[in-house]
Amino acid sequence: MKSPAHAAPRSTPSSPGFLTRLWPILLVLVLWEVVTRVAANGFFPPPSTIVVRMREMWLTGPAAHLWLSDAALDNFPPSLARLFTGWILAGIVGVVFGLLLGRSVVLARFVDPLVHFGRAIPPPMLLPLLIPLMSIGTPMQLTTIVFGVVWPVLLNTVEGARYVDRQHVETARVFGFTRGQRLWRVILPSATPKIFAGLRLSLSLALILMVVSELVGSTNGIGFQLRESERAFDPPGLWGSLVVLGLLGYVLNLAFFTVERRVLSWHRAAKQTT
């Protein structure tokens, strides 16, 4: 377990002047519109067409439902539920086992190859395996998501729990912290920066697996709708689903980043002063 999933250096979406830097996106959108209109290729509808199609698909419902259409209400909530349930379950499993493996060198030595192997299996491979075992549905999708995204959390927690600052450990020993205090007040907090790095990777991976599992074996969800658009040969609808998934990914990233900043404020500050 020497090489945990390494966090790609992150950008800061909320850095100052962000709004003023949005103009390149507008520019690209305008260019996109012009080029697609001129080229008139059916696979690449102009953004305006995509927006109209998105409105048609999802925003034609009654005001009481916030104008969300049945298609939106049928597909968005299940997707989000799967995504978050899977991610949270994987987070819990990953942190618990990560702490265990991080603190027990012997146990880690026994489980090491299994972890490496499990992590290396491309998670979509599980779908054809699980579908005959569990049949199509949410339990099967959740299993896929949990199995696929647990590794970054697990490996990062192991790393974080293993390399607790020696001075922290000794302070805890000198002042006679109990096992529980050591775990809750020393090991877990000092592993949180790593745990969060793992959770962030897992979140984007969970989105990917949510989509795959819905593309392959589902009867609802955004991925399912995407597949339907493909089968119905409806490029604007397909692009619409893509836009929604992209926005979802962006919002998740941003939300996670905000929470992380808050929770780990001590980490950044403590790093700056030393």
Partner: peptide
Amino acid sequence: VRPLIEFLRPIPSVALIPLAIL
């Protein structure tokens, strides 16, 4: 280019497979 990257990167890559199939 940075904002463009920030908007494109979170798109779950597998979602592009149906489009690529077409």
